[in-house]
Structures are given as C-alpha cells and as structure tokens.
Design a protein around this nucleic acid. Sequence first.
DNA 1: TAATTTTGAGTTATCGGTAACACAAATAAA
DNA 2: TTTATTTGTGTTACCGATAACTCAAAATTA
Lengths: 335, 335
Amino acid sequence: MITIYDIAEKAGVSAMTVSRVINNTGRISEETRKRVRKVMEELHYIPNALARSLVSQKTHLISLLITDITNPFYTTLARGAEDAAKKAGYRLLFANSDEDYAKEKDYVDMILSTRVDGVLFAPAGDHSHDNLLQLQKHQIPFVVLDREIPGIDADVVLGDSKEGARNLVEHLIALGHQRIALVNGTQDVSTARLRYLGYNEAHRLNGLALDDSLVIHRGYRDFHDDSALDGLLQLDDPPTAIFAANNMLAVGVIQSLRHRGLQVPGDMSVVCFDDFGPAGAINPFLTVAAQPAYQFGQLGMQLLIERIEGESSDASRRVMLPSELIVRSSTQPPS
Amino acid sequence: MITIYDIAEKAGVSAMTVSRVINNTGRISEETRKRVRKVMEELHYIPNALARSLVSQKTHLISLLITDITNPFYTTLARGAEDAAKKAGYRLLFANSDEDYAKEKDYVDMILSTRVDGVLFAPAGDHSHDNLLQLQKHQIPFVVLDREIPGIDADVVLGDSKEGARNLVEHLIALGHQRIALVNGTQDVSTARLRYLGYNEAHRLNGLALDDSLVIHRGYRDFHDDSALDGLLQLDDPPTAIFAANNMLAVGVIQSLRHRGLQVPGDMSVVCFDDFGPAGAINPFLTVAAQPAYQFGQLGMQLLIERIEGESSDASRRVMLPSELIVRSSTQPPS
DNA sequence: TAATTTTGAGTTATCGGTAACACAAATAAA
DNA sequence: TTTATTTGTGTTACCGATAACTCAAAATTA
C-alpha cells in the first residue's frame, strides 16, 4: 500500500509537504504542488483514513443500528439516513439487531471500539437502556429512533403511535366494528404501549367496552403461523377486525388467517401500523397508519450531525412525526 | 477517552503489559493480570480499533455495496451477508449505490480510504468495470454479486438468469400465451442480457416467433407509471402476458396496468424475476422466479472471507445459484 | 546596504496501539 | 556454587498521517 512517505520520496519533498498538498493548507509553491499531485496520481495514492482519524479524532463514520433489515419501514428509514449522511460527508456503518438485546449489545461494543462519530439508534426496547447508557458513558453522541426508552435523556425522533392507533381503530369503529382485536408487540417497547393506549382511547371515546381477551402480544417480527390467533377466533364472541401493531405482525396475521381459510376483508377486517415501502406498491391492499419512514432517517441524521458538530444546545430534542391513515381494501363493515 | 496509557499508569505497569493482558499474549503473572483487568473495568476501557488497525493492517471491516436498499432481494441478501460476517468476526460497512455509477464510484473511493479488509460488491452494471478495477489495483479482495462484469476476473456469485427466465416464459407459454412482452433492465447489466436470452430461448424451443416490439428496457428500479407500457398495449397484436425482469419492474408494471384499469391476471398475466421477501408474504400474488437471496449474501461472504484470510487458491471461483419457479395467482391462460 | 517580512519548505512530536528486542530476578541444571 | 534457562516486564521503534514549531532563502522596506 502506498503511503504519504512514498509520495514524499518520489517527489523529493517531505511528508508534511505532501500532507499540505492533500489538504490545501499552508503555503506551497505552484511548482511543488503540481509535482506532488502528479506523483500522487501516478502511484494511485489514497490517504489512509485510519491514520488521519487517529490524529484528528474523527472518523466521519456514523453507525446506524436498526432492528430488522427486512422490514420496509427500516430500510426506507435507512435510505433517508444515508442520503442525509452523505450530504454532510459521513458514511454509515450499518448494524442490524434483529430485535435482540444481546446482538444489540455486541454491536454497541463494536461501535465503541470503532470510535464512530455518532450513532443513530433504533432500540429493540426498554432494555436497550443499558446499551444506550454505555454510549452515554463514553460520550458518543446518539439519536434514538422510533422507540422512546424510559430513563434515557437524549434526542429522539418518534412517530405518534397513540394518535395513529386511535385513527386506525376509529376507522374500524366507524365501519361498525365492535369487537376489535389487537395483535400487539411486547410490552417492553414504547410504541406497543402507546398503540395500546390509542386502541384503548378509541374504545373509550366511542363508548365501546374493552376486553382483554382481545389483546395478544408478540415480538414485532415474530408472528409466524400461530395458534394464538385460534384463541381469538374461538372466543364466544370473536373479533370482526384485527389491528396489528406493525406491518410484520400484519403479515403474520394475514398469513394465519389465510391458512385457516378466512378472507380479508370478507371474514375479517385487518389494519396495521407502518406501510410496506416501494415493493408494497405491487398490491396496495392493507389499510395502514403510514409513518414517514424516510423522514425518520433524514431528520434523525440531521439532529445527530448537529450534535456531533456541536451546533445544538444541551437540551435534548424530541421530534414527533404524524402518521397518515391510508384506507385501502383490507377493511369493510362487519358481516 | 481512556487510553491504554491511562490503564498502565493506574495499574502501575507499562502499556505493553496492558496490551498483553488485552490480547492474552506473552507471559503475565496472574497477579498483574488481575490488577490490570480490574483497572480496565473501573475505567470502562475499550481499546481503540483505529490504532490497532493501523498497526495490524486489519480493520475487520467488510464493505457491502448494493444497488437498492429498498429492494427485498438485496435486504435479504444483506441479512445473509451480515450473519456470515458476524460469525467470522467481521462487521459490515454498508453502502447503497442506487444503481448509479457515480455514487458507486464515490463509495469505492471511501472504501479505499477506509482500508476495509474486503468488499462484497453488487455492481450497478458493466460500467462498474472501472470501479472494480480500482479495487483490484489496490489489491482489496472482493466478491462480485448478482451481475457478472465483462473484463473482471474475480470470485462471483450469480443466479441462473437465463434458466430462470426460460422457466418463467415457458410457464406462460404452457398456459397458452403467444404474445409475451419483456420489460427488461438496461443492456449494460448482465442479468438483463441473460434474461433476454432465456426469454428468447423459450420462444425458440416452443416454436414461437420473436417480436422486438414486445421488448422494452428500463432501469431495474426506474419503472414509474410509464407511457412505454402504452406502446405495448396499443400494438396491433398486443401482449397477453408480461415478463418483468425483476421485482421492482413488476411493481411498476402492475401499478401502470392498474392505473389503466387492467386486471392481473384477468386482462394480463404478469411474471417476474425475484421474490418480495418476508413483507411480500402478506399477499403472495405474483408468479416469480425466486432467487435464494439469503444464500447470495451468505455464500458471497464466505468466499470473501476465504480470500481475505488467504485460504483460497488463486483461481477465481464462479458460483451459480438456481432460481425457483413459484407459481401463484398472477398468471392464467389468455382470454 | 542593512533590517525586516514573507515564502516555502523541513523537523519533531503525537494520536493509541503492538512487534521486536532487552534485561533483571527467579528458578533449574550442571 | 556457578551457569543456563525461564519468567515477567519494560524500552524502543513503528503503523501513516498531521499540528506546532523552526528556519533558510527570497522579497520587501527602511
């Protein structure tokens, strides 16, 4: 590998002079500059970012930690983050926790040793607390995405889960549904709790009774063909509609319904949080509360870069993005 | 930030002794080892990977360059790559070229300066040649994914595009279709050329005439509601089926058909290459030639790591993975 | 012409680790 | 007891760049 010393030697100057040419600093005669440039090109020289970072204490790397790389919400978010990062001269070090706290911890250790300039952190859930604390302890700037973590004071970009959930459920109620099941995430995730509150509120505001037997919990990406659905279907007074708390749960629900020979929306209306990205446009079918995923990433990255570059005040900022109710063909009045 | 010297001082030893404790090298008395360990924990010391890499000439970073992060084929591939990398102690530096040669070049420059140990490279197309050559020139090991680049001799993991295309088209022919349109990628991409050959071969083997007016070209992720489709629909003898050369093209085709009030498969049968990932399970609708995306990533990563660790011979290896024809409900006999 | 300023470099030390070598004290072998 | 070996640790140099400082030659000013 060609180093700055190879260039210096071949050009008959010192390494410092080459460094000055690279960075356009100090005074260099036009003649020398040209000579050095020529040698750099001849030898295809590329400065070693490791060595630079060691001196400058800056890697221009930002870590993006998401929980499910096959979930279109996160990939669209990643695109927003990447675009914003690139614009500001940062690169993304990408990590995928699979909603798994242990994997998340592994990545936090890696992040710390790599000395990234900052982290865009979509936490698995409340127990991410320790991992985030670890970042704080080492003074790595970070922005939390999508899920709020109790006990962590940091910049955060959230969707309005409660309001989005209320809109979805009220849409079902307006269609005439009275027995609405909630297939929710696990209770260690703030969005799951808030979506439950929205579900709750919609019932209360519309004078509908709540029934705990209509609520079940699953990991956001763990709804494989599941007997828990049978529990709902075999109730004395089974639901006529299901609210899935995110897109992947909806996929699982709909698959399970299909395996049982039930039609959506004929036999069961289904709504969910989060849309399905560009690929989902092939068959826009589900009524959803769509979150602005791209903006999540873009805004989060902007906040983070401001933090990194010291442009923001000490107080942590909290951005809440609205979701949009998109009514499609997975809902109809109960039969 | 705590350094190895802080630890050394507080433990009353030299930096080298601390280094030996960290790496379990050399001889250290049990007593010293314990003392150093204790100090490291007290100060939450984490070794600086930059400094280590500078000495060891190893970053344990692998760059994964894909062309479309919102395409489920690539995200599933990324998951396979990530799992394999993690198993071997490497991390992924993630990059997304958006099928854009200029963006790809930018990332190659970044890759070179970051001194990653290797690159998993899904090229945008034939003109990626120069970018790959750049990697070769700097002796960065890489494995090419999905698309073969003329003039580049390297390990490569491919899908069997020709065979997959032939299967899809023969499925349509078996249903009775005689006028089959091909919405293909651009000609600078090997898979587009091979899928055309498969399309071609299916016609030839089944005694069907080819008609160039049935073939159109678009970038693999650039089929937005498009008047080119009108060209096909307004032919004197319009197609009764469309073969889209990848999943995102199929999305565009189906959206366009819908906007024009045409039903799939009622008015038009549609098939495509590539499946739609976990999220696509919500409504398995399209008949596809599904490629084993996870294996693409996993296998590619294995080949790459063997290269990096010098376990493989000089000859470059070429792995071809079969695709699987999955017949679903987007196809039926012509009306 | 002498003194001062500007220009265009070079030297040295440092970022945070590790490889290679050195070396005193403890232990074992002759 | 003397010599050889082992053990545990320290010193020095270096990875590839840059910040801070130095300095001779050229240009400018008095």
